[in-house]
Amino acid sequence: MSVQRPSLVTGPGAVGSWPEHFDQLYTRSRDMRLQRFYAAGTVTADTPIINTPLIAMDFETTGLDAEQNDIVSIGVVPFSIHRIFCRESAHWVVKPGQNLTGGSVVIHGITHSEIDVAPDLESILESLLTAIAGRIVVVHYRHIEREFLAQALLHRLGESIEFPVIDTMALEQNILYRRQSILDRLLKRRVGPLRLGDCRERYGLPHYQAHHALTDALATAELFQAQVAHHFGEETLLGELWC
């Protein structure tokens, strides 16, 4: 039995209220696809992580500003804390709303000609939302995936999207922070590098080539399994981990 602890990370979603919030979003949303997504609901905060259906998600984008830049590719890998299911994973290349100019944007493994023939995000939106519906999304650095998807939908459908996420970067930051000495904290020393590859190395996970959305999603799923194995335990409640 795990003792209820306060959330390790704080996010925009008030902890514990996600299922109710989904109900409200369901009645407020106009788009059928979003309605279906919200109708699928979300697991409650008191669900042990071992019983939580998860899906790792990663975006490659044309830049870091959700208002200026757009999504180029999306990778998703469903998993639980004991198994990552590659056979149910998916990878989409989509055409960004702005042009990719020359060498200023480096997207690994995707050629310009591939992007030229890629569909708009809207045409794969239904598949994406179906894949993540009912699962808790796990990302490394939530500001990219959550904000880019919200912006992209706002731009295309006139309405945004909200969903709870588990952020492996925020979890790692917290784990490292708790390990710091008081002096480190007073001097506001950095906790250590938090890039996906750096975090993985701490758990003995192999080096994967970065910046491919599907590989990064797989890498994130593995990282979360390792974090749970080392720091939390399988009975930890979802409410302590999501935001």
């Binding site: 998993f79 004991h82 198994r83 990552i84 299911f85 590659c86 056979r87 994973s89 758990y203 003995g204 996970l205 797989l218 799923a221 593995e222 399994q225 390792a226 194995a229 080392h230």
Partner: peptide, 11 residues
């Protein structure tokens, strides 16, 4: 590779 399942075990 697409059919593989992945799992992490702590030492």
């Amino acid at each position: 590779a697409r059919q593989v399942e992945v799992v992490y075990y702590r030492s």
